[in-house]
Amino acid sequence: MSVINDTKAIVIGMWTTWKHIFRRPVTLQYPEEKRIPYPRYRARIVLTRDPDGGERCVACYLCSAACPVDCISMQSAATEEGRRYALWFRINFSRCIFCGLCAEACPTMAIQMTPDFEICNRDIMNLVYEKEDLLIDGCGKSPEYNFYHHAGIGVTQRRGAGLEEKPPVDVRSLMP
């Protein structure tokens, strides 16, 4: 009978909630107790450096294109030796939703997410991070990767001296 079934359902439900009253709460008392996030946790964004210390970011605009909330802006420029870099690079953390799409889009592993989630601030302008605030001294994840050794444009090395590259072709060579 449905009345019996319904009553049973209600009673089972009541029993379940009754049991939960005596369970240990899962809540963590945040400011006093802190949970340590996993290394791949997606919080404050940083800009990392090459193993040899150069800025990894080439200001290719892919992160700002991937960003669903448009919180990344930058201006690319070139150094004397032709290295492309970000003249300025700005992340507005008051807009950022920490989705990690920027880090996923980054072809040079420059932009990375860190587990540092405590960046709250009373003045919203303090949440607008410039390149000086974002750039760290280190490689973060993938410590051995250097984009310029892979992309055949010869900025950090002679042309044709990168990984997987032959020396430049001489068009007037005698060899066929």
């Binding site: 909630t17 939960h20 009253i21 005596f22 369970r23 240990r24 709460p25 899962v26 809540t27 008392q29």
Partner: peptide, 10 residues
């Protein structure tokens, strides 16, 4: 409080 406990909260 009680709802909290029922939902495993504090």
């Amino acid at each position: 409080k009680l709802l909290g406990y029922i939902q495993d909260r504090i």
